[in-house]
Design a protein around this nucleic acid. Structure first.
Length: 275
DNA sequence: AGTGTATCCTGCAGGC
DNA sequence: TGCCTGCAGGATACAC
């Protein structure tokens, strides 16, 4: 579910609710989202305050006092919902997995229908090591078309699959990979190393534009995703190929196709995306 | 270095 | 209405 724009939207929405607040206790409803036993997790976070809320790729990072990092991967259906003081549960919490109760009232609820998401408390060195294994941030100032092209040349995998690999580029998921390739006019099945320099420039521009516009729209809600304030993302209506199999391409009128690459759907316009 | 497959888990849409 | 299949914004581990 949540890709970079959704994680970014959640981070921005969470910040005002969390900065400076202290975790009083933790309620673990489904321990399978933690990677360690609840008995080990609880003391690692209780008593600590939220000092910063950040994003890396699709991950939401909450830096806690004492140097530890609360790292949340939202998986397909994960949500982070702030719960005001006095409320019994967040209105959108249909499948609460972990509740962080805050001193002075209120809570942060990790809600996850499918529980593919994870909630981990890591030391800063442990987090840094993990972050180092992830690819560059596509929206970083210094991330250039040249960087993208050089990295693409090192792989023969289909460019759509390449974009989903978090070790190669961070934060891109199936929706935005397909949308960016459509906007760049590149067939998702093309081997990454066959993408020419001019195409890499178009892909770089399309990727950054799609991600920025999706952030500006508060992300894409297909089903489960909600912002920290419980709102739906508005980017779904801007999608040009994702989920539009059988519908006409808005640019050339060809019928949008769905193909399967490494077990995941890819969507393309056969008229606009050259093989 | 690739791909295909399976796994974690729940819900929903569509066909019959 | 029920039952079945296939599909879903992710990530990982395995055999080939």
């Amino acid at each position: 579910m949540p890709e970079l724009p959704e994680a970014e939207t959640i981070v921005r929405g969470l910040r005002p609710h969390l900065i400076g607040r202290r975790i009083a206790d933790v309620e673990v409803v489904h321990s399978d989202v933690l990677r360690i036993a609840p008995e080990a997790f609880r003391p690692a976070v209780t008593g600590r305050a939220f000092e910063a809320v950040e994003r890396r790729g699709k991950n939401v990072l909450m830096r806690l006092s004492g140097g530890r990092v609360l790292a949340v991967n939202l998986g397909m259906t994960g949500r982070l919902l702030p719960l005001p003081a006095g409320a019994s549960d967040a209105p959108d919490a249909t499948h609460p997995a972990v509740r962080f109760l805050l001193e002075g009232g209120g809570a942060l609820v990790f809600d996850d229908t499918r529980r593919f998401g994870t909630v981990e408390c890591l030391g800063s060195a442990e987090w840094s090591a993990r972050s180092a294994r992830m690819g560059p941030e596509p929206l970083a100032r210094g991330y250039s078309a040249r960087d993208l092209h050089d990295a693409l040349l090192r792989s023969r995998s289909p460019v759509r699959s390449w974009l989903l690999d978090q070790r190669r580029i961070a934060g891109v998921g199936n929706i935005y990979a397909n949308e960016a390739l459509y906007q760049a006019g590149i067939d998702p099945r093309r081997p990454a190393r066959d993408v020419r320099e001019d195409e890499a420039r178009r892909l770089h521009r399309a990727l950054r534009r799609v991600l920025r516009e999706a952030i500006d729209s508060g992300g894409t809600t297909l089903r489960d995703y909600r912002t920290a304030d419980g709102e739906q993302g508005r980017y779904a209506r801007a999608l040009r190929v994702y989920g539009r199999e059988g519908l006409p391409c808005g640019r050339c009128g060809s019928t949008v196709e769905r193909v399967v690459l490494t077990n995941r759907s890819a969507f393309l316009c056969p008229g606009c995306q050259t093989p």
